[in-house]
Amino acid sequence: MASSSSNKSQKNAVNTASELVSGKRLRASDVAPWMFLGPALIIFSIYVLFPVLDSIWLSFFEWDGLGEKTFIGFGNYVELFDSDQFWTALTNNILWMVLFMLAPPMGLAIALFLNQQVYGIRLVKALFFFPFVISQVVVGLVFSWFYDPSFGVLNSVISFLGGDPISILADEDLVTYGIIAAGLWPQIAYCMILYLTGLNNLNHEQLEAARLDNAKGFKMLWYIVLPQLRPATFIAIVVTVIGALRSFDLVATMTAGGPWGSSTVLAYMMYEESIFNYRMGYGAAVAVVLFLIMDIYIAYFLWRMIRSEK
């Protein structure tokens, strides 16, 4: 990437130079990009950029969504940091992020398992990827059913092994793990497909050379293969972190944050406070905290990208 993009920027520099030579052309290509960008920029500003700023602004007000807004400074944040619900949600978010980090290595393991050329392997790969294609609402339904204490698959297995049935989604200590497992299912599938593509593009000469040097097993994977898979690993980690922080759909469909708010996450807490409790300002404050956490990753991603463009 680094070498190819530096080539491109050289080319671009050449273009600019040739544009500078003829003054008239420079004008046309001065205005043109803004004509092409216009529609996208306008709608993106209205629906994405302005709302981000507006939400930050709103988080300093008390507002029920209809009546007058009252400015209360950092009041919402003070209340937030004092609330148990917030710390439960934040802890759950961290748990999501930590456990979601299992997705890239598990995706890699499945990709290594499937990276063969036997009859029907295309279909097998497609079926493994399946969970990512279906809606998270359906994944949530599927897993609620899977965990059901009276007829779920999981409890059939447990009672077959002689254990007592457990109701994962009604147990305060287990519920978040249960939802995270459901979330990992499509996430692993996504990481798998990233790694399969990465494996397809390995440098064969390096592999052969390493094999001649008698590299095998784990050493081969760690020193020869993984360094070549770095771009795939980077993307896999980025989408996994974002997936973990976006964990709304599954919480909403499987438990609605319950039992007693024990499985809530910041995304769901924000929705609940604003839509059910009509506390828009407070909800906005929750959203701002989530946004700030996400910003760390956004900043890192952008920094990496801009660096590679230059």
Binding site: Y47, S274, G283, I298, L302, M305, I306, E309
Partner: peptide, 23 residues
């Protein structure tokens, strides 16, 4: 150029919740 590009990418990553009330 690069800043507009970065804005589009960053916007794509923001959590939905920060957009919810204004949208």
């Amino acid at each position: 150029n690069i800043w507009i590009f970065a804005t589009f990418i960053a916007g794509n990553f923001v959590p939905f919740q920060i957009l919810m009330i204004p949208v």
